[in-house]
Design a protein around this nucleic acid. Sequence first.
DNA 1: ATGAAAGCGCTAACAG
DNA 2: CTGTTAGCGCTTTCAT
Lengths: 335, 335
Amino acid sequence: MTITEIANAAGVSIATVSRYLNKGPVKEETRKKLEGIILKLNYVPESIAHHIVNSPTQSIVVLTHSLSNYYTMEFAETVNEEYTKRNIAYYIGCSTNISTEYKYLMDLISRGTDGIIIHDPAMDQTQVDIYNQISENHVPIVLVHSFPIDFAYNTITVDQNIGMKKAMQHMLGLGHKKIAFVRGAIGYSFDLKEHIWRDEVKKSGVEPEKEDCLKISNSDDETGVAQTHKAVIDYFNTGNRPSIIFTCNDIMALGTLQALHELGLSVPDDISLMSHDNTVISTALGLTCVDMKTRSVAKGAIDLLDYAMHGNDTTPRHISITPELVLRTSVIYAK
Amino acid sequence: MTITEIANAAGVSIATVSRYLNKGPVKEETRKKLEGIILKLNYVPESIAHHIVNSPTQSIVVLTHSLSNYYTMEFAETVNEEYTKRNIAYYIGCSTNISTEYKYLMDLISRGTDGIIIHDPAMDQTQVDIYNQISENHVPIVLVHSFPIDFAYNTITVDQNIGMKKAMQHMLGLGHKKIAFVRGAIGYSFDLKEHIWRDEVKKSGVEPEKEDCLKISNSDDETGVAQTHKAVIDYFNTGNRPSIIFTCNDIMALGTLQALHELGLSVPDDISLMSHDNTVISTALGLTCVDMKTRSVAKGAIDLLDYAMHGNDTTPRHISITPELVLRTSVIYAK
DNA sequence: ATGAAAGCGCTAACAG
DNA sequence: CTGTTAGCGCTTTCAT
């Protein structure tokens, strides 16, 4: 079904149909006729052809590395709310590693996507040239929680240093000495958190034990829960008795909770638990945690993208949001 | 950056460049030259122009009604895994109501999307004509968990009747008489479950009380948790003392758990809890529940779409998957 | 192996 | 207010 067919059916030229479609000046009579025909023929414009001549495609996409993660989803959802309001087509792509991220990016720019938000980009410093290649194709991109590097993109992150420091000071301040630290195996933000954990423990005068740092190989979905569960059980079975456990995300908190329950330890009476991200899981379970302020981050990302898409100033901007502690009932004084 | 520019730079015709790009016959020498130029000029093909002449766009999208829902996300993720393997661009759109669902659908077919999977479609019988309109545009669509109607689409669902019956029989069989039923305010599948709850309770010889059916207005994210929490507290404050609570999804289970905790009731010692969907939350919390077999459903949806996209037989197919009970520790004999 | 030219569905001057 | 026409970036005969 093309514009030509409906032009023929109406006995007018394709230009008139196009004008009608684009709300240009058309005589009332013609308008009525076209309206009827389009309805009857069930015509849907081929936007692909529209956009080959009229560049913006009215589409924004968020690329993320995981779908089964509340923290990611809360981000995607906030963005969705905004673009739904604006009536622009918004889609989510999920790239689980560097190579699919690259493929997605190529697909998106070749599709003429108007703007791209990459949440937790998989690429790091060694792949900067790829980002540069993309930037040469003039697609506005904003990086959310990217590795820290000064390059030609708009970026927004929460300052995880501050968040983690606040968390450590909170725990240490309550008298905790042996703080188990549960992290994912690979990832810049895990490294950063571990570093601060190590640092602050040291500063408090005790030497961080190697075994107190538990690395979970898969951490986003129920297998992450299971892996954490196992790691925590093993950790206790080796004789470790921390007064508090800190988990780098809520999925790990879930696995930890499960393990604790199995070990007959209740939170916070027998042991404290602190988490990170403040997803619905922390809310629901009453876990004290670091709030990633996902909604603020999402709003900021949208602002940056607006700026990149519509502003006339092309210098990249960088936003850093300060995370805050959410105090609930899962952390109490060390016994 | 267009094919023309690279043709000029290489001193060949655009036809040759096109041939090179499409792996057609090109002399080794020309090939080498083009390869270099394309790399240097950072050329990315304009797939929009490609697909105006060469229809398939190599893209599949899943439309869903919510992003902050593990059950939905597990579905989206399973589909993602499959299409990533196949190297086809896969995106997710989120339409929160009938009107945005319609807009999305129009956007997708006008973009030339190759196939669409609608998970939990918002439309019901009264909007069937919209689906028909779409079907006339020849875009393969499969409906997942749609309302039950015989029309020209491929559909796949789990038989929630069976699942809910199994759940009721399990609870009733353990001697529970007053079963609180927690559902979302609006939705076909909630209605269906309530109907069976009512039916089975009646069959067991007791009259279902109006107050035992709690309706939660928002049920997908943390506000759903909060709403459920409040509703359950109110319910108990009115003097109700069920021996078990059944929740229609895990978000509601979370809210219920929170309320129970606040009321000083522990699961399953003081009260039993059974949920629906078997997301990571049920797994982690050890909740007995109805497993929606999301991964099987996702695989089935992909099969149906393959069939619709590549098969030569156009008669719609329908798959019904039987849900199963997952017995964990949250449900015990009624006291 | 390569180039010229037509055409995909649509928009945007430009005439009338 | 409407029709004619050129052209968006690409593919695809058809010649050469």
